[in-house]
Simulated assay, not measured.
Amino acid sequence: MRTLEEQIEVTAPVGTAWSQLHRVAEYPLFVAGVVHASAHGRHHAHLDVEFGGGRHAVDAELTDHGRGRVMSWETVDGPPLRGTFALRPLDAAHTRVQLRLEYDPGELAGALGAADGPVPSTAVEEAVRADLELFKQLCEE
């Protein structure tokens, strides 16, 4: 497994960022490849994701870690991915969003239909940075 850690500062209160993170239906607005998303109960999400030249259903389990504003998630099927979002208030109007993503480049390549070997870590890093920028924009609107 490879681990990627990224962070971004958002000009919004921590509560605003936390609420946005839990709006599963809005994941297509800030997660590349997600074309539809819906919550199933408090701890599951169903995502329709476009990758590898087709549309695939992916289910994920979501876990909140109390008042610490930490949410973890892990795919139940589809590409094996797991991650954690930690939201830290910097002051009343600013939040640091930290993301830790764990993935296997070889398995991710297989899920994406890539025949040329593992997905380069730079491609994953660029996608995650772009997703965080979109998340920031949503929180600041």
Rank of each mutant, 00 (worst) to 15 (best):
M1V: 14
R2Y: 01
R2D: 10
L4Q: 12
E5I: 13
Q7M: 10
Q7K: 13
I8K: 04
E9T: 02
E9I: 04
A12Q: 00
P13V: 06
G15S: 11
T16E: 07
A17W: 03
W18I: 02
S19K: 11
Q20Y: 00
L21A: 13
Y27H: 15
F30H: 15
V31R: 08
A32G: 00
G33E: 07
G33D: 11
V34A: 09
V35A: 09
V35R: 13
S38I: 05
A39K: 10
H40F: 00
R42F: 12
H43T: 15
D48W: 01
V49N: 07
V49R: 05
G54H: 06
A57N: 07
V58L: 10
E61C: 09
E61P: 01
L62M: 07
T63F: 10
H65V: 11
R67T: 02
R69T: 01
R69P: 00
W73Q: 10
V76R: 08
V76Y: 08
G78T: 06
P79Q: 03
P79F: 11
T84I: 09
A86L: 10
A86F: 01
A86M: 14
R88T: 09
R88P: 01
P89Q: 12
L90A: 05
A92T: 10
L99D: 11
D104L: 12
G106C: 00
G106E: 14
G113V: 12
D116K: 02
V119F: 01
V119P: 01
P120N: 02
P120R: 02
S121R: 07
A123C: 00
V124C: 03
V124T: 05
E125G: 06
E126I: 05
A127P: 00
R129V: 14
E133K: 15
E133S: 12
E133W: 10
F135P: 03
F135R: 05
K136T: 04
Q137A: 14
L138D: 03
L138A: 09
E140I: 04
E140F: 07
E141W: 13
